Amino acid sequence: MSDIVFPKVTLKLATSMDGRIATRSGHSQWITGAESRTRVHELRAQHDVVLVGSGTALADDPMLTVRLDPEPTKQPIRMVVDSSLRTPMTHKLVTTAREYRTILVSGLHMEEEDEIPFVAEGVEVWSLAIAPAGGVSIRALLARCAEEGIESIFLEGGGKLAASFLKANMVDHIEWFRAPIVIGGDGIACLASLEIESLNEVSAWERIRLEVLGEDVWESFSKKL
């Protein structure tokens, strides 16, 4: 895989001031305001893929399309990392798969018969290697994306998948939308554990944008080389 040019990955965060994406009960709509949400749709339109984890897909039943006026001529591919194929057949991502290209990324441990119902509805299923720590291998996923000609990915969550990409050092940019609210430590964090023991292990980022959107703040970061 050393010669493969991986797609560029942008991580989107939409949080409270204290980095929470939902209350302890899971309530999250809407943390950020309408202007921030419009910017998110504009960013989606600039990427080949919009990617989420299975937890986000289960909790939010999202469409993951670009909703702007006018609608873009080409929608990004919708992709869910769902190693055990937990996405319900009734979810929008499945029921609209013939209209918008949709990919579920499962683990190699899944049986072909588990994929058949999704394929019958027009969903593509990629069976990829599982990482030693569990979950789909990030490098295997990016390698498959590269083979498919995918050059850019907009990663919208959740916290576990975002942490996996960061631990694999596979995030190039961060777009962080922050609302002027505080949820507290019992809220749901935007990132799962990165297992960092020392400040010498942290990744360094350069802020390249600071913009006020209504009551929110939008910051863009690029990874320092």
Rank of each mutant, 00 (worst) to 15 (best):
S2Y: 02
S2C: 04
P7A: 01
K8G: 08
K8C: 10
V9H: 07
L11Y: 08
L13A: 13
A14Y: 01
S16N: 05
D18Q: 07
R24W: 06
R24K: 14
G26D: 11
G26Q: 07
H27Q: 15
H27C: 07
S28V: 02
I31D: 10
T32E: 10
G33E: 12
A34D: 01
E35T: 00
S36W: 13
S36E: 11
T38S: 01
R39M: 13
R39Y: 14
D48S: 09
G55L: 11
T56L: 05
A57R: 05
A57D: 08
A57Y: 06
L58E: 03
L58D: 03
A59G: 06
D69F: 06
D69M: 11
E71Y: 03
T73F: 07
T73H: 12
K74F: 08
Q75H: 05
I77L: 15
M79P: 00
V80P: 00
V81L: 09
D82P: 01
S83Q: 07
R86I: 05
H91Q: 10
H91C: 15
K92Y: 02
K92T: 11
L93Q: 08
V94I: 11
T95Q: 14
E99W: 00
E99G: 13
Y100T: 13
T102Y: 14
T102N: 08
L104D: 01
G107Q: 09
M110K: 05
M110L: 04
E111V: 11
E112L: 14
P117V: 00
F118Q: 12
V119H: 00
A120H: 08
A120G: 08
E121W: 08
E121V: 00
V125R: 01
V125K: 02
W126P: 08
S127C: 08
S127V: 03
I130P: 03
I130E: 14
A131H: 06
G135P: 00
A140Y: 09
A140C: 12
A143V: 06
A143M: 07
R144M: 15
C145N: 12
A146T: 10
E147W: 01
E148Y: 02
G149T: 08
I150G: 09
E151K: 15
E151W: 10
E156D: 10
G157R: 08
G159N: 07
K160G: 06
A163H: 12
A168R: 09
M170V: 01
M170D: 05
W176I: 02
A179N: 10
P180G: 04
I181M: 13
I181C: 14
G184E: 01
G184N: 03
G185L: 09
D186K: 07
G187P: 02
G187R: 01
I188N: 03
A192D: 15
S193P: 04
L194A: 06
I196D: 04
S203C: 02
S203A: 12
S203W: 01
W205H: 05
E206I: 02
R207G: 01
R207Y: 02
R207P: 00
I208W: 05
L210K: 05
E211L: 11
E211R: 13
E211Q: 15
V212H: 02
E215H: 10
E219W: 10
S222G: 04
S222H: 05
K224T: 11
K224E: 13
